[in-house]
């Protein structure tokens, strides 16, 4: 059941990413182009997603455990440090350069374009590099 739940959640997520325009890098860069020809689309995507997550998360976490697992696995850290900010800056630079963040880039693999595959390969290499250099 946990495999099915993960698959269904992933499919819903992928539908949302494609439907919302998040897999369209021109739209994402248009959102980040605040001082140019700003396209507010992504703010509505974030708004829609947060409407659900802000509303439902407290009710879900009130339960003693998830439906198909023994316990909730939530990030324990609440620290706001240089790593959080530095990592956020590096990620934001990469996001702005091309318009892909991890979720939409993975979903866009469905389009079978070379640039998306190259982006994912470089992203995985970057993750490996962070591990190798003991940055994460």
């Amino acid at each position: 059941m946990s495999k099915l739940a993960a698959l269904v959640s992933g499919i819903l997520f992928g539908i949302g990413l494609a439907l919302s325009g998040m897999t369209n890098t021109a739209k994402v860069q248009g959102f980040l182009d605040l001082f140019g020809d700003w396209q507010p689309d992504l703010a509505f995507v974030m708004g829609g997603a947060l409407l659900i997550s802000l509303g439902a998360t407290p009710f879900i976490l009130q339960r003693s455990k998830p439906i198909f697992a023994e316990a909730f696995s939530l990030p324990a850290s609440a620290v706001i440090d240089r790593r959080l900010i530095g990592g956020g800056v590096l990620f934001g630079i990469g996001w702005g350069l091309v318009g892909y963040c991890p979720g939409p880039a993975i979903a866009a693999l469905a389009y079978g374009t070379e640039s998306t595959v190259v982006f994912i390969a470089a992203m995985l290499a970057g993750m490996g590099l962070a591990k190798l250099l003991k940055l994460a």
Binding site: I85, A105, F119, L135
Partner: peptide
């Protein structure tokens, strides 16, 4: 540039959790 962007996204998301 896509390679550079991917590297930044990969490294940044790991460091920034």
């Amino acid at each position: 540039l896509i390679v550079v962007a991917g590297l930044f996204v990969g490294i940044g998301t790991r460091i920034g959790s």
